[in-house]
Amino acid sequence: MLREFGMGDVYYLVASARWTFVLSLIAFVGGGLIGGLMTLARISRFAPLRWFAAGYVEVLQGTPLLMQLFLWFFMLTLLLPVELPALAVAAIALSLNASSFAIEIWRGSIEAIPKTQWESAASIGMSRLQQLRYIIAPQAIRIGIAPTVGLAVIVIKATSLTALIGFVEVTRAGQLVSGVTFQPLLTYSVVALIYLAFCWPLSILSRRLEQNLDVNRTPELSQ
């Protein structure tokens, strides 16, 4: 069983990264969709909706993702008649978790737009949704884009936890390889490099976007 860590293992790890990618993509898109709807609830003028969305964020961000994963895993396997693949369990847990970040980011971006923008849009007869769609959102997107890219990094890193419920992505693949090669340092270093390859460019992009925005938005205060 015991063998040397070789190129074959590197290929296997890189190949497993496609599941990291697939899961990240699902969670990011899913989180974005749920987050989008919940953001509407979060800024709604109907207070109970607002409270619900606030509570939703509070619970998802106030508890460990790992615990959320395990809870979903057991709830879905014990309470559903059909057996769900690990990917589905992981996708549900991560999407919901990602959505809570999306809500906070986008709510913050929307609230950064001055109230007067809403008011002047209303004054030309727009409905609340139209105000958001045509006046507020286009401005808020400029503020929200950098942290949203940052959210992608959070999601990618979060997928590593699904290794612990048995989903074979790159971290789980690393556990398997290190189990047969007994070279954990090398194996996990390669795993870390794979994550770095995904996340670093996104982090740099996020930083760039943020800097560009600052240049346009806040003229240097000098004294």
Partner: peptide
């Protein structure tokens, strides 16, 4: 550190 998962860092 910020671009790799905490879990992988722990394993290392």
């Amino acid at each position: 550190i910020r671009n790799t998962p905490f879990l992988v860092q722990l394993f290392i």
